[in-house]
């Protein structure tokens, strides 16, 4: 097994990157894949909280990079799924503690040991972002159907193209069908019109995200959660399955098929 390294980034903060990394990881691991998540947000770590693993942190990414522990010692195994691991970020340092080449070396070491390495990028386009995309085979850009988020996503996609890290795929998160219908929110078409990259997921707004985050139980564990379902679908699409997208207007499914992993 040689892992694929997938980074989720956005430019804009607060669009749902950490939530999506946690849920996509659960989705993949539920399908029998061996997944290692890495939190790239050094200094403002959140992935550990969302996964419910924060009280089990002994070593973190910076400890690995600075040689105070072996890579395996920093990997926290999730007790709910057999093959889901987290390498948390450090909270008491900042993004200068890790460099792009550190991330490349770390991922090279991990590649033979798992199927997927998911990296949660911080917001912004500076050092933390650079660290998080350095080792990526594939980048997922996340946005909300909202003008500021789309502007930032456009910028990030441009940077990824310029640095030959593209083509990226798009996740549109926190869409509210009723608002789109009233014309108060950008539609999927509006967003794709500007960003013009392949869509890999549409995730509806779901207040259970907050509950799940507080409990440390990602929604992908809950079959009744629509957002959880959407994240499970993204995991399936990463595995090459064709899954119809959520039909935002009619709350059903329509036949825009995503044509799988290349």
């Amino acid at each position: 097994m040689t892992a694929s390294v997938v980074t989720v980034t956005s430019g804009k903060g607060g669009v749902g990157k950490t939530t999506s990394v946690a849920n996509i990881a659960v989705g993949l691991a539920s399908q029998g894949q061996r997944v290692v998540c890495i939190d790239g947000d050094i200094g403002l770590r959140n992935l550990d909280v969302v996964l419910g693993l924060e009280n089990r942190i002994v070593y973190d990414l910076v400890d690995v990079v600075e040689g105070r522990c072996r890579l395996r010692q920093a990997m926290i195994r999730d007790k709910r799924l057999p093959e889901l691991y987290l390498i948390p970020a450090a909270q008491t340092r900042d993004k200068s503690a890790v460099s792009p080449s550190d991330m490349v070396h770390l991922c090279d070491e991990l590649r033979q040991e798992c199927d997927w390495i998911l990296i949660d990028s911080p917001a912004g386009i500076e050092r933390g972002f650079r660290n998080s995309i350095a080792a990526a085979d594939k980048v997922l850009v996340m946005t909300n159907p909202e003008v500021s988020a789309v502007r930032d996503a456009d910028r990030v996609i441009g940077i990824l193209d310029a640095e030959e890290k593209g083509p990226a795929s798009l996740i549109i998160n926190r869409i509210k069908p009723a608002m789109v219908k009233r014309g108060d929110m950008l539609s999927v078409e509006d967003v794709l019109d500007l960003l013009a990259i392949q869509l890999i997921g549409i995730v509806p707004e779901d207040e259970n995200v907050i509950v799940a985050s507080n409990r440390g139980t990602p929604m992908a564990f809950d079959d009744k959660s629509r957002a959880g379902q959407a994240f499970q679908n993204i995991a399936k699409r990463l595995l090459g399955e064709e899954v119809p997208f959520l039909d935002v207007e009619n709350q059903g499914f329509f036949q825009r098929i995503f044509s799988g992993r290349k």
Partner: peptide, 13 residues
């Protein structure tokens, strides 16, 4: 791209 990106990254380290 490669030359400038790698120089920028090395300097950044």
């Amino acid at each position: 791209v490669n030359e400038l990106v790698s120089l920028r990254d090395v300097l950044s380290e």
